[in-house]
């Protein structure tokens, strides 16, 4: 049994309490501002205690930006992004760490490269890719000369004419953000620490690679899946620029864009109370996700089977 060092435990508690207070201080101010009336929130300095208008503000916010629909959109998009990222990255990392194949290093660096470019540069081209998903295919068909070959051989004209646009669709909000170097990298790091004996044993038992993946790797990855799941859900939840640009239907937008709509315009009444209130309401689903995924942070998974 590990000894208990009481001074150290006390110090740990103290550090955590202080950190919790500090990290939540900005949230507290959001709560204060979100519970004041428009006249009260203009006071400088802001009061230290919350006011009594929280429910009233929440109701105003709810109807003003149609928060219900936006929350639903955000949940779908954030879940889609998180689940998608985790799924494709688990597979990628599995491939990169457990298989010896050509271009393995190249593929890893290609995935990694996607972290290294500021979004501003690719806004318009990405938008073009999203409104015309088949463009790369068309390009490929033209460049490769497949179309003329087919035409010459069969007389059929091969054309990629479908007009496939993801504008104003959940797919359009999810797919462009689904690739993940972060998750691939983290799973790679994690898989590399998994004892070789497990894989050896699986192979001796005649298990296929995918069976090994499902029955051994996936369960062992649970803490990392939880950590990444939280991070990616919040990443998806807090997306602003893509949803703003990639939707032109007000009903298809997300809650963060809705909040931005409540940020007082330079010239108008600084009704920050509504903005802050909306920001707090928008935190509720992420908090539920954080709490739900807590159960996956179980200790000592790596010892299973020892």
């Amino acid at each position: 049994m590990i000894e208990r060092a009481s001074w150290l435990d006390a110090a740990c508690h103290a550090i955590l309490v202080v950190a919790a207070l500090l990290t939540c201080l900005p949230l507290y101010y959001a709560l204060v501002a979100g519970s004041l009336t428009t006249a009260e929130v203009q006071q400088v300095p802001l009061p230290f205690l919350p006011g009594g208008a929280f429910v009233e503000n929440a109701r105003a916010v709810w109807t003003r930006i149609g928060l219900g629909r936006l929350l639903l959109n955000s949940v779908i998009v954030a879940l889609g992004i998180a689940v998608g990222k985790l799924a494709i990255s688990l597979l990628s990392a599995f491939a990169i760490t457990y298989f010896r194949f050509r271009f393995r290093g190249t593929v890893f660096w290609l995935i990694f490269l996607s972290l290294m470019l500021p979004v501003e540069v690719r806004i318009v081209p990405t938008f073009e890719a999203m409104t015309d998903v088949l463009m790369p295919l068309r390009l490929l068909v033209q460049l490769s000369g497949v179309d003329s070959l087919v035409q010459a051989m069969t007389g059929w004209r091969l054309e990629v004419s479908a007009n496939w646009s993801l504008l104003n669709s959940y797919s359009g909000l999810i797919f462009p953000l689904m690739a993940s170097a972060t998750a691939t990298f983290l799973f790679r790091q994690f898989f590399l620490t998994i004892p070789d004996e497990l894989c050896d044993a699986a192979r001796i038992d005649g298990a296929s690679p995918m069976r090994f993946f499902w029955t051994i790797l996936l369960p062992m990855s649970r803490p990392n899946l939880a950590a990444l799941g939280i991070i990616f859900f919040l990443f998806g939840w807090n997306q602003y620029l893509w949803p703003l640009l990639f939707t032109t239907e007000p009903t298809m937008t997300t809650v963060v864009v809705g909040i931005k709509q409540l940020v007082p315009h330079g010239d108008s009444i600084p009704a920050w109370n509504l903005t802050m209130n909306a920001a707090l309401l928008a935190m509720l689903p992420p908090i539920v996700v954080v709490l739900l995924l807590q159960r996956w942070f179980v200790k000592g998974l790596i010892e299973s089977g020892k």
Partner: peptide
């Protein structure tokens, strides 16, 4: 090939409002 393209183009609007 046509069938594949048509299939994929048709599948996605499910997710579309």
């Amino acid at each position: 090939r046509r069938a594949i393209l048509a299939g994929s183009a048709g599948a996605l609007p499910l997710l579309r409002a």
